[in-house]
Amino acid sequence: MRIFIVAAFILTSFASRSQDTSWASSSAPDSLDSGQLSIEGIWELVDFDFYENDVIVRSAPLAEGYVQHKIFMDGHVMWSRQVPTEEKEWYGFGSYEIKGDTLIERLEYGSHALKSTFKTDEHRFLIDLDEKSYRQINFKDYLNFKSSENYRRVSE
């Protein structure tokens, strides 16, 4: 229940900011090679891909009831997940930047499940972004891909 309250608070904060555009003049932390695309907005996880030798060998849909969102806004990221088969709460908040084709997230706080699962607060992903979707590729070693989370844009 707390995860929904936190998500609602964050979404409300973002929605109220859209009324006042003075904050929009700050430089966004996006630096993708295309220069035109922005990751800012609300994203929903749609599925996963798994790799062998840098090639997608299998895709996996989400389990029924599994929901995951990411919100990127003005250098901040908010992440939440609902897993219907677990009682754990999954959420995190922090900052992000994009350097070239790498998304760097630095989580400042999060749920106990999140903090106890991940060994570091900084996460790096290879990113493949277009206007309506993006893929964040987790890699074991440099360019030895293992899996990706694939998102669709819900709102800008």
Rank of each mutant, 00 (worst) to 15 (best):
F139I: 02
E149W: 04
T117S: 13
D121Y: 01
T120M: 00
E87H: 09
F139W: 09
E131F: 02
F139V: 05
T102H: 12
V77Q: 08
E131Y: 02
K146F: 05
S133W: 02
E89N: 12
N150A: 08
T85K: 08
Y96I: 03
R81D: 07
K119Q: 11
K99S: 15
E86W: 02
S148E: 08
K88H: 03
G100A: 14
V77L: 05
G100H: 14
K132N: 12
Y151N: 01
E87C: 03
L126C: 08
Q136M: 09
M78T: 14
S133N: 14
N144M: 08
T85Y: 02
S116W: 00
G100M: 10
E105V: 01
L114P: 00
L103Q: 11
Y91D: 04
D141Q: 11
W90K: 01
H112N: 12
N144G: 02
K119R: 04
D141N: 14
P84Q: 10
R106I: 06
T85F: 02
R124V: 00
G94D: 09
E149A: 10
N144Q: 14
N138Y: 15
F139R: 06
R135C: 04
S116K: 14
G94M: 01
Q82F: 12
W79S: 12
T102S: 14
V83Y: 05
I98M: 09
V83M: 07
L126Y: 10
K132Y: 03
E86L: 04
E131V: 06
R135D: 01
L129R: 07
F125G: 06
I127N: 11
L129N: 05
Y109W: 12
K132D: 13
S147H: 03
L129E: 08
Y151R: 01
T117R: 13
S80W: 02
E108K: 07
I137M: 05
E149D: 12
H123A: 06
S95N: 15
K115D: 08
D101W: 02
H123E: 07
K146C: 06
S116R: 13
L107V: 12
T117D: 04
L107S: 10
F145N: 02
W90T: 03
W90A: 03
T102R: 15
E131A: 14
K119S: 14
D130E: 12
H112G: 04
T120Q: 04
Y96G: 06
G94S: 09
Q136D: 07
E149S: 11
N138Q: 11
E87S: 14
G92L: 01
I127C: 10
Y151L: 01
G92C: 05
Y151C: 01
S147K: 01
Y91L: 03
H123G: 00
I104P: 06
N138L: 06
A113M: 03
S147P: 00
T117N: 10
